[in-house]
Design a binder for these strands. Structure first.
Lengths: 340, 340
DNA sequence: CTGAAAGCGCTTACAG
DNA sequence: CTGAAAGCGCTTACAG
């Protein structure tokens, strides 16, 4: 079955394609009788407009692209879901791509999206990120671009982030306020800005509370996994029996640490308090439940999309657009892995 | 900056658009010198083909749509990721939509995808599923359709599933073999085929092992949550102190039950063995770790897409296509919530 | 109020 | 080997 076109309706009704198009779009310069008969016929034939043709003609696709490092990842899937729902409300559909933390893939995917003439692109960057030529390409191409969560400071475009430094600061301060004196940090990889910022927040909190920074208490995750948390906890406790607090760069890592301490019978939070980052579901169902920093993924997705839309209009008209950065607030979630 | 078109290249080179198009597509009836100069010029101008125009002309969009009940859900996000990667390899991009378990939304989303003239649709259905008119619409429209995981038996299209009945049978048999005599089932909602099938597998396993079915040991989840698992465990244990096995319709529910028993000091697996379904990450990191049925989400996504591609060719040529159902094998993952 | 015409950016059958 | 022409299905400026 070939799809029904305007032409089909026009010839059935013996009128012009122009009239059919106008009638269907509710233009005022069409007689009521024409309009009614067109609408009736369209219904009868189950006409659905071919948006490919519309896109070509109107030079916009009502489509946006999103590239995230990974889909099977609670935070990103929340962001994704926020974006998709918000887009749908405005009649936009979303192409989803995952970079698997590879810049090479990111580059290819950007080309794919540009080929598809998406009206905008949303991205959270791969970790190994020093090269931003592909992002510059998007900007040079005048396609609106918004970065979220894992961003690059050196690219001039709109961004939606949380304040990782301050959030980490608050998390560590919570540990200190609840009595911790010797606090370890299981940090993220060396490159990504947000793991750097969380580390800096950790140091600042120590400093502001007159606790001396001790590099031997800092462990660096490569993959940010449960296993790393487990291993680091083991090493840390082997060397520092008097450790009484851990701030982990991510909930998964914190959960790994909890698993180790549960195993060897170290009491959490009485002997050691642990706080994570992100507020993944898993933290709420383990025992003890995990205190953490709530990172508003769903909201971040919605905000990022709104920012993108704001950028789309000026760009279409060729006007200048000034990039904007939105910082979303976070919140400490106190559960049972920290005191009081 | 306007996008570069074939026409731009043609006029720069003083040749026809036809020649440019052919050169770029590597047609043999173009002289080497023309081809070379076209390719050089395309590169110089950073030409990227406008796929909207290509799509309109070739009547295929190299695009597929996927509708799942929820994105923030480990199983579905795995399927999604399998689909997206497989699609990308073949040069296809994927529109992702979530139905939030609403048939009304499913209907709208199908219309959106049909408007976009996607080359195929992949779906896992909303739970409240009695109405399949929208699926029939896709089929009538000759758009290839493949259902996975949450399918409808009454629609005639290709499907990728696991054998829920047999998998559940194996799970319960594992409990029995490890010594359980009084086994409860926390089942899924009454409608979806897979929760029905898992329930039937449970009954069959009891029957084959001469254990009398006792309806008072069956609890029905509405939302399939951690909380339900916790509550049901409490109720169950209140009424049946001698219960020694639980088969939960999903890992989350099983984890809720484990949390309750941990809390009141009932030993798992010694006093009560618990097995879940799906093999979510969470089951591997709680204590005791959860025995479960591995449901191959990533693989399911890949298979579903392959099936869709197989269907696309015959349909394009107007040939008949015979729907096919693929049943993927599952595997019992033995961890520490069951004996031996 | 109506419709012929141009054009969005491609591809491809056809003629030379 | 090359290019003029038609056409995919729309929208819209323009003439009547």
């Amino acid at each position: 079955m070939r799809q029904i076109t305007l032409k089909d309706i026009a010839s059935k009704l013996n009128i012009s394609v122009t009239a059919v198009s106008k009638a269907l779009k509710g233009y005022s310069d069409v007689s009521k009788s024409t309009r009614d008969s067109v609408i009736a016929m369209a219904e009868e034939l189950h006409y659905t407009p071919n948006s490919v043709a519309v896109n070509l003609r109107t030079q916009q696709t009502k489509t946006i692209g999103i590239i995230i490092p990974s889909i099977v990842h609670q935070f990103f899937s929340k962001v994704l879901s926020g974006i998709i729902e918000e887009a749908e409300k405005k009649g936009y559909l979303v192409f989803t791509l995952q970079s698997n933390e590879s810049i090479a893939l990111e580059k290819k995917q950007i080309d794919l999206l540009l080929n598809k003439r998406v009206d905008g692109i949303l991205m959270s960057l791969a970790t190994e990120n020093n090269d931003i030529s592909h992002l510059q390409k998007v900007i040079d191409n005048k396609t609106p671009l918004v970065l979220f969560d894992k961003i690059s400071k050196i690219i001039n475009c709109s961004k939606v982030v949380i304040d990782d430094r301050e959030s980490a600061y608050n998390a560590v301060t919570h540990l200190i306020k609840s009595g911790c004196k010797k606090i370890s940090h299981f940090r993220g990889p060396l490159n990504p800005q947000n793991s750097i910022d969380r580390y800096l927040g950790y140091r600042k909190a120590l400093e502001d509370n007159q606790i001396k920074y001790d590099p031997s208490l800092v462990y660096t995750c490569e993959a940010v996994t449960f296993e790393e948390g487990y291993e680091f906890a083991k090493k840390l406790y082997g060397q520092h029996k008097d450790i009484d607090g851990i701030f982990a760069v991510a909930d998964l890592v914190a959960v790994g640490a909890i698993a180790y301490f549960n195993e060897i019978g170290v009491k959490i939070p009485n002997q050691i308090s642990i706080i994570g980052f992100s507020n993944w579901f898993i933290g709420s169902v383990i025992s003890p439940s995990l205190s953490t920093v709530d990172q508003p993924g769903y909201k971040m997705g919605k905000k990022a999309l709104k920012l993108l839309f704001k950028e789309m209009n000026p760009k279409k008209k060729g006007e200048e657009f000034i990039p904007k950065t939105i910082v979303l607030p976070t919140e400490i979630i106190k559960r049972n892995s920290t005191l009081n």
